[in-house]
């Protein structure tokens, strides 16, 4: 995999020019999550409604009277973005049937952070997925409650120091492994699910388009490096995402009609130490712990490869036939 996105594969004039997440938002310098949103909305286009969960992205985009949203947007609460989106979808469906709403497809996106999705919003998400609403849920995962001051969530990785899971003489920081949220979501048998990262903008935008154009509930899990919470230099969000992917810490894959496909299968991966090292949240880890993390990553990655191979050999799904 290329170390940096090469100009040859990238023609900006072919990308949507609109900035639907307006400049002037209050995101931190070098925010990977705002970058992810910007790219997602580029792909989604103006015929889109966003329902946000409480969190960084909600706070930084909507301090009255300044909104960063150039599309219709609603925030209700923290744990219910998927439920609000369910209502928006159901409401538009019936109003369109009654001729009381504009015609044509409206993309409905619910957005939550890792806390709003993997923790407090998990029930609402599961319900909305099970009910088969036609919407896309985007989890912008920065691996902790950054908005409230870097508190661990169930998506915080092993060994990360956060304010309530601090590293100390008797503590290595977060003691448990990151909850495997995409696989929990996958258990709802969605037609489309993908992991993505704004360090790979074309990939993220293509996955967004695919998710939105797939009928039924779809899900994007977007790793969103956070210089504030991860304590890496402010110019490194894109590089951190790249290191996460190239080390196998955050594999990019899609699950389409139940079949998992690794977007890039890397037999040679960077050592996880390269990913951990620039981040203050992992600075306290010693060689043994880094070795342990390396082992987790290898095992998980091998399982993914195995599954993708099995899925590739499985009978074709209706869409493939």
């Amino acid at each position: 995999m290329a170390e940096k996105t090469q100009s040859a594969e990238f023609i900006p004039r072919l990308l949507p020019p609109w900035e639907l997440l307006a400049e002037g938002h209050r995101g931190c310098q070098g925010c990977g999550e705002a970058l992810a949103l910007r790219q997602i909305l580029k792909a989604a286009g103006p015929d889109t409604i966003v329902c946000s969960a409480t969190g960084c992205m909600e706070i930084i985009t909507s301090p009255y009277p300044e909104t960063a949203w150039r599309i219709p947007w609603i925030h209700v609460a923290f744990e219910n973005a998927a439920a609000v989106a369910s209502g928006v979808e159901a409401g538009i469906k019936i109003l369109q049937k009654h001729g009381r709403y504009r015609e044509g497809k409206v993309n409905i996106i619910a957005i939550g952070g890792d806390g709003g999705t993997a923790d407090i919003g998990l029930q609402a998400l599961s319900g909305a997925l099970e009910r088969r609403h036609d919407f896309t849920y985007v989890c912008t995962d920065n691996e902790a409650y950054m908005n409230t001051g870097i508190q661990r969530s169930s998506a915080t990785p092993f060994g990360a120091s956060t304010t309530p899971s601090p590293a100390g003489k008797e503590s290595i920081g977060q003691r448990t492994e990151k909850k495997d949220l995409p696989m929990i979501v996958a258990a709802h048998n969605l037609p489309y699910l993908a992991t993505a990262c704004p360090s790979y903008p074309l990939d993220l935008m293509n996955k967004t388009r695919r998710a939105l154009s797939t009928e039924g509930p779809t899900y994007l899990h977007v790793l969103s490096p956070c210089p504030t919470g991860w304590r890496h230099p402010i110019d490194m969000a894109v590089e951190m995402g790249r290191l996460a992917v190239e080390s196998g810490v955050f594999p990019l894959y899609e699950i389409i009609d139940g079949k998992l496909r690794l977007n890039v299968e890397m037999n040679k991966r960077r050592p996880v130490a390269e990913y951990l090292k620039p981040q203050g949240r992992f600075r306290h880890l010693g060689p043994e712990q880094i070795e342990e993390i390396q082992r987790f990553v290898n095992e998980y990655y091998d399982r993914l490869i195995y599954r993708s191979q099995c899925d590739a050999e499985a009978p074709p799904t209706p869409h493939e036939e």
Binding site: E19, G24, R26, S62, Y64, P65, E66, T67
Partner: peptide
């Protein structure tokens, strides 16, 4: 807020 993208003034 009825002015889309008003954050641009920030």
């Amino acid at each position: 807020i009825s002015e889309p993208g008003s954050a641009t003034g920030q």
